[in-house]
Nucleic acid binder design. Structure first.
Lengths: 135, 135
DNA sequence: TTTAAACTATAAAGCTACTATAAGGTCAAT
DNA sequence: ATTGACCTTATAGTAGCTTTATAGTTTAAA
């Protein structure tokens, strides 16, 4: 399988595949005589794994860590679960922060109707004066 | 006021101030004979405005836009409010996406207790097989 | 007075996870 | 022979800074 086919199969761009190879996330495939990369099914699975991790919001570093666990399958899997727990709490704190932010933005927005001049705009005034209703 | 004092006053690093100047968000201040930047209160207000916008999650481009409105104070402020409305809906969709993600992560995490080997880890298996409970 | 600490300056690279662009080689079909 | 689709590498751009390197200036202590 050449890079274009693999890319289409998994739904990424060819550059992304080369990028993952360069970052050490995907093993360097064999090459044809002309230098073209030749991929196996294994590569397909590896790439799909990376993409699923990315969809779950894991960083490339975290994916790398997971791969190192996969390479040593008789360890206890506590580290895997710890990584996921960390990621979950990270996502949760992001949600909390964004919810607080939304509140601030909505209250700021409520300080102006649209029928003013910029000079008297409640939103701009609110930001300028630091009346951002901080907790 | 020199750059270090301004930085301490507003709570940013000196490099950040130079960066904003370079990006056209902060007007270039006068210089002493030795080349040191000299800031006025106006700069302090400008910088504080930028930081408050950043805390609200606005991009530098959006801040630039707001500044252009400030420079033309007799326009109607509908554009200001539209910018904020856009940003609010952006934040809301981020929240929604993260909440869906959290659900996925939690259900994935529930597929493994810690008392296994990596080989049998429910989390890794879940990612590998694509059983990510997608909606 | 010398010297060291603390401050300032510029320029350039590093960070994340790609995406895009440039300049070129390969291959199948026309 | 040439077009078009594919492949190669290398390099730059994205956001918003942070870090590093290198060097000049001021200030306070020894």
């Amino acid at each position: 399988m050449r890079i274009g086919q693999l890319a289409q199969l998994v739904g990424v761009e060819t550059q992304t595949i080369r990028f993952y190879e360069q970052q050490g996330l995907l093993p360097p495939p064999d090459r044809q005589d002309n230098g073209y990369r030749v991929y196996t099914e294994k590569h397909g699975e590896g790439l799909a794994f990376i993409r699923r991790c990315r969809i779950l919001g894991l960083s490339l570093a975290e994916i790398h860590e997971l791969q190192s666990y996969q390479d040593d399958p008789h360890q206890p899997c506590t580290a895997v679960n710890a990584l996921l727990d960390d990621h979950i709490s990270h996502v949760r704190s992001q949600i909390t922060a964004l919810q607080a932010l939304e509140k601030q933005l909505v209250s700021l927005r409520a300080s102006c109707n649209d029928d003013r001049e910029v000079e008297a705009c409640g939103v701009l005034a609110g930001i300028s004066e630091g009346k951002m209703h901080q907790q």
